[in-house]
Design a protein around this nucleic acid. Structure first.
Lengths: 341, 341
DNA sequence: CTGTTAGCGCGTTCAA
DNA sequence: TTGAACGCGCTAACAG
């Protein structure tokens, strides 16, 4: 109970071979006899040996750690992405490190230190805008940087096809609604802008006047319910007899939930009957009885898949050029959009 | 652009001192003159030097990595815990590693390998039951193991006071309801059992007959909506004129949402008017207009706080004995419980 | 107070 | 094919 971790030296002694033989036995493609390889592996198994990733990483200044950066760890979108991504990373032998930059800015600095000093194999920005120091540091150290749903030149980009989704949303609403508008969250992001662009171009293609874009009021305090609260507050002026709209594209599901609840309470108006709503994200709740929300789904597994192949490309390939990949966002039709006729 | 990372050696050369002087300048409490310390730190800042945690950890077989193990990364409970815990860990200089054991069992083995081979400073089990190999490995290597809401002898335990909450739930419901029962999720856990125990003892203390405990049907496929679907399916037989209950303790919020939606649809019965419901977890949605759910809150920051102090205890202290700490679960009163009178 | 030396565990030379 | 020696970056023990 004194020495806790078993080292390659002990394996070598046990197997009666040199220490470098152990390295060779565990290195694919190293020149070693079948006999010796078997002996070493047997000894390693008996002792429960596992390579020390700290020492291994020290050699070529690269660990098997992939840092996941998020500004909104608790959001439903993260709740969908995190399981998919971590599963794939772990299966590929990577260790996912979680970086929470949602709160204080000094936290971001501290976590950047972690990322670099642990020699991350890659950094994936899942949400939010990391401080410039983050991008600068990864550039300087050569750590590959992958960003989701962002638009930063010079780094690897993976985004949902927000533009296309916006166009589909407009066309869908135009089938049954005349007074159409979009509702965006208080905080503007690249994704939101792209969705709006697509929405506007959908109107233009239909020969309609540009629809109004309404922005929710900034949240008072709790960000966990900001979007819902925004939709709830906007609902009354949007929906109903004297409301300004009967067809809504809410830029995320939570805004839609807020609008639906507000309409229900103040006007007794029901989505799918009195007006149409389309959301974005397909959070689990969108399928619930109380909402049955028609919404766009950005498949987390497709994102994860693309992240993995990008990491592989950056790590073993010597290619310097960055990728810019688009993931389809599919409309999940439920009952919050009125039927034709 | 050839050498990516700056080492202590380079800092030493820049400052015109020995390499060990650099270590001393950065080690609190080392014996070094103020003049030299200033020179070293100046050089370090200029070059952007940061300690290589891989090399540092190699020395005493311990990294600053804390592994977070979860079987349900996407659950609302995790969505609340993760931000709180990672924020505290990072602020304290630790790097949170995410281990997803929710899916395939071979993934669990692979991630265990990561945890050990990266020399984690501690392992925190947030949810789910890790395979025995996990516990065995941490014991063997001496990595401190902290488990949330579990009951495993021999490791550090932090739990919400589920028993006390169960008793409060019964007493609260008994104020206005005569036919009281509890609804548990399909999958049984330590937390759920403790809540039920407290619920039953609450009934006993009131001199009432033991309330019925209903278990939701096991989910078909998608675990993300399992609890909601369970509540939804159970709703009709529970609530209403010919239902068996008018006071429900749902062992988590999502079950409560399902029951509420079911009652609304099939009986036009409203929680807080026609019957009472109490949930557990206080997920953000519990505060929404559509539910206004009275529920128990296990404060994530209190959990995080306790995790941090336990880690500190395990790391620098030499104490071998494990802790067993209880966190209060507070009732958040909203409108899903009928008023007295 | 400072510089030199040793060694953590690993992969990879270089010689045999 | 195999073993011995080296160096990755760091801290701690030792010597001055």
């Amino acid at each position: 109970m004194k020495k806790h971790y078993v080292s390659a030296r002990e394996v070598a002694e046990r197997a009666g071979v040199s220490r470098s033989a152990v390295s060779r036995a565990l290195t694919p493609g190293a020149s070693i006899s079948a006999d010796m390889k078997a002996r070493v592996i047997a000894a390693a198994d008996e002792l429960g040996y596992e390579i020390n990733m700290l020492a291994r990483g020290l050699l070529d200044d690269r660990s098997m750690i992939v840092s996941l950066v998020s500004a909104s760890l608790g959001s439903p979108f993260m709740g969908m992405m995190l399981p998919a991504i971590t599963e794939r990373l772990i299966a590929a032998g990577y260790a996912p490190l979680l970086i929470n930059i949602g709160t204080a800015p000094d936290i971001a600095e501290e976590s950047l230190r972690q990322v670099v000093s642990l020699r991350s194999a890659a950094v994936v920005i899942l949400s939010g805008s990391p401080p410039g120091t983050f991008i600068e540091a990864t550039k300087r150290t050569g750590i590959p940087l992958i960003a989701l749903n962002r638009d930063e030149p010079g780094l690897n980009l993976i985004s949902a096809d927000n533009r296309a989704a916006g166009r589909v949303a407009y066309r869908e609403l135009a089938e049954t609604s005349a007074r159409i508008c979009a509702v965006s969250p208080a905080r503007d992001t690249f994704s939101m802008r792209a969705r709006i662009e697509g929405f506007l171009s959908g109107a233009a293609e239909a020969g309609h006047a540009p629809p109004r874009i309404i922005r929710a009021a900034p949240p008072i305090a709790d960000s966990g319910r900001a979007d819902y609260a925004g939709g709830l507050a906007l609902g009354p002026e949007l929906i109903g007899p004297d409301g300004i709209a009967d067809g809504l594209f809410c830029l995320n599901d939570h805004i839609a939930f807020g609008v639906i609840d507000a309409a229900r309470r103040s006007r007794r108006a029901e989505a799918g009957r009195d007006f149409s709503v389309i959301g974005f994200d397909d959070v689990p709740m969108a399928a619930w009885e109380g909402y049955r929300l028609t919404t766009f789904r950005q498949d987390p597994h497709v994102f994860a898949e693309q992240i993995m192949s990008t990491i592989a490309r950056c790590v073993d390939g010597e290619e310097e050029d960055v990728i810019d990949h688009l993931i389809p966002a599919n409309l999940i039709a439920r009952e919050s959009v009125r039927h034709v006729g």
